[in-house]
Amino acid sequence: MTINLGTAHKHIRKFSNSSKTTATGPQPLTMTHGLTHLQRLESEAIHIMREVVAECEHPVMLYSIGKDSAVMLHLAMKAFHPSKPPFPILHVDTTWKFREMIVFRDDTAKKLGLDLIVHTNPDGLAKGVNPFDHGSALHTEIMKTEALKQALNQYGFDAAFGGARRDEEKSRAKERIFSFRTAQHRWDPKNQRPELWQLYNTRMNRGESLRVFPLSNWTELDIWQYIYLENIPIVPLYFAKERPVVDRDGQLIMVDDERMPLLPGEEPEMRVVRFRTLGCYPLTGAVESPAATLPEIIQEMLLTTSSERSGRVIDHDQAASMEKKKQEGYF
């Protein structure tokens, strides 16, 4: 199921200045006003994607099924229209994603006619690696970081789009849009290539690769605003609904399937919750919220007092943990 805005959308001025889509007719940009900030961000992201397709041999788009991926995919549809995006989308499946995410993923790929690759680390699978017995850090390392490297090596991708934004985390604020990785997929934060104007350097030797972040300059609010204006489908988990959760170490964890071991005294209870970020269900905290529509989500976001990544258990593992993960090859 995807949630649609329906009628709330009609009298919003359409984002792009094209002729067929607005109720009030085209809105030509005036000479005194340049592009709006979202138009600038959209155009920049499209430019970035086209550069990669023009200069790299074998690009892929990392698709995490979350809202940022949804926006990135939408931008890819725009960038290459009327062609389909000339690259596959890759989902690294830890097997611990919310069930609704998987349904949404398969529907999206089918509806847009995209080439979807799903990769799971077979070694991790064989050993039964999971976040409960092995802890979030090891689980993420094996089922996400290692799995991603495996997939990139196996298919020989030389450029991978990711939906990371610079406003998410401090070390991301310093990462280039075109971020170079060694043959071992390592990021060297102190030795990044200068990135000048919009002239991206995609040259590399065999085995080396690029991570490319077309949404680098977007903020969380930009993402929601764009989803709203462009009517982009997102996973229903972002919207409030009664869901079975347990309170564990201050995080509300949803009991998404029977694999979730309950601790003594833990009893799942139905609460009206939603997710501000999506990942593996045992590692993703829900927030109590009544926001069931996009405007309500945006409003809640504007009034909220806790940042997006605080719902992700992995960021709290150790100080400067994201920078460390990235050096090791986490996306």
Binding site: H11, I12, F15, H33, T36, T293, E296, Q299
Partner: peptide, 22 residues
């Protein structure tokens, strides 16, 4: 109410939309 939220947020988004970027 949801309708009020929609109207309020729409006003807000309309204003946001016209912002430029420096």
């Amino acid at each position: 109410s949801s309708a009020q939220a929609d109207a309020a947020i729409q006003t807000y988004l309309d204003a946001q939309q016209d912002k430029d970027l420096l």
